[in-house]
Computed example of a mutant assay.
Amino acid sequence: MARIGDAAIEVLAEEGMRGLTHRAVDRAAELPPGSTSYYARTRAALLELAVTRMVELDETAVLPAAPHGPDEAAAYVARFVHALVSSGPRMIARYEFALEATRRPEVREIYQRAALEFRRRCAEVLAAVGSPDPGRHTRMVIAWCEGLIFDTVAGAGSGEPPSFDELLADTRELLRGMLG
């Protein structure tokens, strides 16, 4: 399944949502025709498989335990953002999902489910390091992360992605401003 999920992400990044077909994924995964259909019978199932794989890959960038203190939290967030901006086609595929989710409720549900889990984890981390308002601070941290990631992957900043050290310094400054 991971091979099919990885291939679906690759197809999304290279060909966009319209190019994501079972046959295209079979070709990208170098599998016999019909293999993807065996595991994901419908287009919705294929989209869910791809999102699930993206979440699995994202989770490898997250520390196994919650950080203790603002500096560890800054490193936690910086490591996650650095992994995402370094992930190549995965972020382009994620933007394809985000745009498609604005037009198709079934994609929105899949996309939203993954996003809510990330927000929940972010709120837990912020609460653990002393945020007086984890819900509001989560919204701020995620907006900052998403803006930075978009600028790095698809925006004007894409020619010069930030290093981990730059991201760490930026994240520390952001969290210090929030947490005092």
Rank of each mutant, 00 (worst) to 15 (best):
A2N: 09
R3I: 15
I9R: 03
I9L: 07
V11R: 08
A13Q: 06
G16A: 13
G16W: 03
M17E: 06
M17C: 14
L20N: 08
T21E: 13
T21I: 14
L31Q: 11
P32I: 01
S35V: 06
S37C: 12
T42Y: 02
A44Y: 08
L49M: 14
L49G: 09
V51F: 12
M54W: 01
V55E: 00
D58I: 01
H68V: 05
H68C: 02
E72I: 09
V81G: 05
H82R: 14
H82M: 10
S86M: 08
S87N: 07
G88I: 02
I92A: 02
V107D: 10
R108S: 12
Y111L: 11
C122P: 00
E124N: 03
E124I: 03
L126F: 03
A127D: 12
A128P: 02
R136A: 15
H137C: 08
H137R: 12
R139L: 09
R139I: 12
M140H: 12
I142P: 01
W144V: 01
E146Q: 13
V153A: 03
G155F: 03
S158A: 14
G159M: 12
G159A: 14
E160V: 07
P161I: 04
S163I: 11
E166G: 10
E166I: 11
L167E: 06
L167W: 02
T171Q: 09
M178K: 02
